[in-house]
Design a protein around this nucleic acid. Structure first.
Lengths: 325, 325
DNA sequence: CACAATTATGCTCTTCGCGAGCATAATTAG
DNA sequence: CTAATTATGCTCGCGAAGAGCATAATTGTG
């Protein structure tokens, strides 16, 4: 029960919106560290003003970007030693309670310099909508192969092979959109992300790569938090009606599908998507139609809240699709 | 960036084991509060000694109960104002990072007075293996009905009905074993758990109930943490091979089923459970058999790690069963 | 020893979710 | 009018899962 002052508690938010079929997260220019990279909106947890962690996060985002959030969910609390460079210089330990929040994209109004950024700009290997991400074939796969070769013994080699196979769907297992965190952590371990080099201080590239490291580097372990958030969101889409917090009150089924595709990072089978949706009774037609340029106008739908009463798991299905030939 | 000292960070663990088909959690006699109730093992987070939150939790449990844990997973961070009685008397805000941990039941060796307790002793309404829990019909259902009646207007009434229906499967929705937290929070709101009365200080029973309140009261919001853990565990059983961390290296399929049933709180269809398990290639026969008293001896199996390489989601199926007539 | 009770295990029947693809309807651009 | 484009309906087939019957291998008892 010693007065352990050497811990600072902070709140960090992954604020998500989808526009133009691009999933975006709110990012601020990093202030402290001098490298000018991106960072997630964050701030100290203030027990005086904040009744709950959730409300603290809401207030934080309201102040920094003038946004109101439609959905807020606690993600994870990060507290590993050394995640904060200040700590390595003798500062206090930083504990960050990370949150996932959803909203419609709205202009940023706050005092800070918060901007909407393409989520996949930070995690490009997660984007499979336009085919296999190039970064997987070029820097990632060969580096992982080398890493497997460098194993000390046969057992470690087998473990590494297994891990690579599971994470990137290179073995028997298919690509699993939810394993975002496992992938990021593997890439970090293999020093395929800038943070790994930075955190090793020397900045010595253990893994010599011809191509640049994939994805934009972020402050602290913020990219790990982004990966955590993406995995959580992808996983929950299928059994909780979260998408509707990213959409306006009325929307076409196609737009709904596009948002789901944007988040899951893969294309979905259109007819099956609609059939499953109809069967789930998750949406209901408003009776109005929307004509978007060419083609037959689409019917407008709205989220049907009443469905929560009847179904235990109410989420959108993700009918997978073979990769385009 | 003011030196906010008014926050204390603690670690709390839900340590789970299953023996004799009873799911148990580790509980200590509460020291401080005088009411002598049960509490979860917990301790301050010490940034000097603990490199990560996970290892901190492991160390804590090792010290308090002499247990080594086979699986550790962060659950949630609790930080609401007023969850700690000391805080209400002007003390610092208590932030608790809660963990779920699995192990085989082993004798408690530690310095503390930790004991294994029946999980359902704290959450009796979650136990459906022996039919509908009596507490649902007696104190819970009538109290919830009254609560619905007390709604201020029609809209609130509808909301309450919907919530009750979803939580307890009383409406169109079936009982969902995973919604443990929602249920606990509803019961708390309706003052059907002792903590609600205690936290309102006056201890005035708003909800007059003939029967005693269901489940053993715990310190702070520890029962909320228990409910969170149970829900998480139930949800993960189906897609992660967690059960095997509760079982010895070799086990019969029936024992495996019994453990899953104990945790999910419901009976499973035996033949289908085995068929699904066989199809999943999650276990492999050891070639040996075990004769347990009467009846045909059962074959012994072991967990087949290699399955992780091939399948993205490797968990035990939960073939539901109609309630016994 | 024969038989009942008990537990393990194999197999079938049926329904339903879902991947896949064909066909048709309703628009707009030229 | 026609082609292109998008929306939408329907079917086929496979495999997973709910439900239940049948059989095998034990133990304990009359």
């Amino acid at each position: 029960m010693s007065e352990t002052v050497a811990t600072i508690v902070g709140l960090t938010g992954v604020i998500v919106a989808v526009t133009d079929e691009v999933p975006r997260v709110l990012a601020v220019r990093q202030v402290g560290d001098g490298n000018g990279g991106d960072a997630l909106p964050c701030g100290p947890f203030d027990p005086e003003r904040q009744r709950t962690l959730d409300s603290g996060l809401r207030r934080l985002v309201a102040e920094q970007a003038g946004l109101d959030l439609r959905y807020v969910e606690q993600l994870y609390t990060f507290g590993d030693r050394g995640r904060d460079p200040y700590e390595r210089m003798g500062g206090p330990r930083l504990l960050s309670v990370a949150y996932l929040a959803l909203t419609q994209e709205q202009p940023v109004r706050g005092s800070g310099d918060a901007r909407w950024r393409d989520w996949y700009g930070y995690l490009p290997w997660e984007e499979w909508r336009f085919g296999r991400p190039p970064s997987i074939d070029d820097p990632i796969r060969p580096a992982l192969s080398r890493w497997i070769e460098e194993a000390a013994d046969a057992a470690e080699r087998r473990d590494r092979e297994e891990r690579v196979g599971i994470c990137f769907g290179l073995g028997a297992a298919p690509w699993d959109p939810v394993r975002t965190l496992e992938r990021y952590e593997l890439l970090y371990e293999v020093a395929l992300v800038g943070e790994a080099l930075r955190d090793r201080d020397g900045s010595t590239a253990t893994t010599a790569t011809a191509s640049p490291l994939p994805g934009t580097t972020m402050a602290l372990d913020n990219r790990r938090i982004l990966a955590t958030a993406l995995g959580r969101l992808r996983g929950k889409l299928a059994y909780r009606p979260l998408v509707f917090d990213l959409l306006p009150g009325e929307f076409t089924l196609f737009r709904l599908q596009r948002v789901v595709e944007a988040l899951s990072g893969q294309r979905l089978h259109k007819q099956n998507f609609r059939r499953t949706l109809a069967a789930s009774a998750l949406v209901e037609p408003t009776g109005r139609v929307q004509s978007e340029g060419r083609g037959r106008p689409a019917e407008l739908f709205r989220f049907r809240r009443a469905v929560l009463r009847a179904k235990p798991t109410a989420g959108v299905a993700m009918p997978t699709l073979r990769p385009a030939p």
